[in-house]
Deep mutational scan, measured.
Amino acid sequence: PKDQAKKEIEKALRNGDEEKAKRLAKKYGISDDDWKELKKRVS
């Protein structure tokens, strides 16, 4: 599910692991808009 994916990506971003977050986003098909939203929430 997308919500689970977003949680994992957000966690990776919080850990400062943007490479992992990007890989997860690609793997789960997270859209650019969702990606920006996640980045905003974390920063």
Score class of each variant (00 low, 15 high):
residue 37 E to N: 06
residue 32 D to M: 07
residue 40 K to E: 15
residue 36 K to D: 14
residue 30 I to N: 00
residue 19 E to N: 09
residue 43 S to D: 15
residue 15 N to K: 09
residue 21 A to D: 00
residue 25 A to I: 02
residue 10 E to T: 08
residue 13 L to E: 00
residue 15 N to R: 11
residue 6 K to C: 14
residue 6 K to A: 09
residue 4 Q to R: 12
residue 8 E to F: 06
residue 13 L to D: 00
residue 23 R to Q: 13
residue 1 P to G: 12
residue 31 S to F: 02
residue 40 K to M: 09
residue 8 E to A: 09
residue 8 E to N: 05
residue 43 S to F: 15
residue 25 A to G: 03
residue 39 K to G: 02
residue 4 Q to M: 11
residue 19 E to T: 09
residue 18 E to H: 08
residue 28 Y to E: 02
residue 40 K to L: 10
residue 11 K to H: 13
residue 12 A to Y: 09
residue 20 K to A: 12
residue 23 R to I: 11
residue 34 D to S: 03
residue 12 A to P: 00
residue 16 G to N: 07
residue 14 R to I: 06
residue 40 K to D: 15
residue 40 K to P: 02
residue 20 K to N: 08
residue 28 Y to W: 08
residue 42 V to M: 07
residue 21 A to G: 03
residue 38 L to Q: 01
residue 30 I to K: 00
residue 12 A to R: 02
residue 25 A to V: 06
residue 41 R to C: 05
residue 37 E to S: 05
residue 32 D to P: 08
residue 32 D to K: 07
residue 31 S to A: 04
residue 25 A to F: 03
residue 6 K to L: 15
residue 21 A to L: 02
residue 26 K to I: 14
residue 16 G to F: 04
residue 38 L to R: 00
residue 35 W to L: 14
residue 5 A to C: 07
residue 29 G to L: 06
residue 2 K to D: 13
residue 10 E to Y: 15
residue 4 Q to N: 10
residue 3 D to T: 10
residue 38 L to S: 02
residue 13 L to W: 02
residue 5 A to F: 12
residue 27 K to V: 08
residue 22 K to C: 13
residue 31 S to D: 06
residue 18 E to S: 05
residue 24 L to P: 00
residue 1 P to Y: 10
residue 41 R to D: 05
residue 3 D to I: 10
residue 2 K to A: 12
residue 26 K to V: 11
residue 6 K to N: 07
residue 1 P to L: 14
residue 40 K to A: 13
residue 35 W to M: 11
residue 42 V to L: 10
residue 7 K to G: 07
residue 31 S to L: 04
residue 10 E to F: 12
residue 7 K to E: 11
residue 30 I to W: 07
residue 43 S to A: 14
residue 40 K to Y: 10
residue 12 A to C: 08
residue 26 K to G: 05
residue 36 K to S: 08
residue 17 D to P: 02
residue 27 K to W: 11
residue 36 K to H: 12
residue 27 K to S: 06
residue 36 K to Q: 14
residue 24 L to S: 01
residue 17 D to A: 04
residue 34 D to P: 01
residue 42 V to I: 12
residue 8 E to D: 07
residue 22 K to V: 10
residue 28 Y to V: 03
residue 39 K to M: 11
residue 16 G to Y: 04
residue 12 A to Q: 04
residue 14 R to H: 05
residue 10 E to W: 08
residue 22 K to D: 03
residue 20 K to P: 02
residue 39 K to T: 06
residue 31 S to Y: 02
residue 35 W to T: 01
residue 22 K to F: 09
residue 10 E to L: 15
residue 30 I to H: 01
residue 11 K to F: 10
residue 35 W to D: 00
residue 15 N to V: 09
residue 43 S to G: 12
residue 12 A to F: 08
residue 19 E to L: 10
residue 10 E to A: 07
residue 6 K to T: 12
residue 28 Y to I: 03
residue 32 D to L: 06
residue 33 D to V: 07
residue 36 K to V: 10
residue 10 E to G: 03
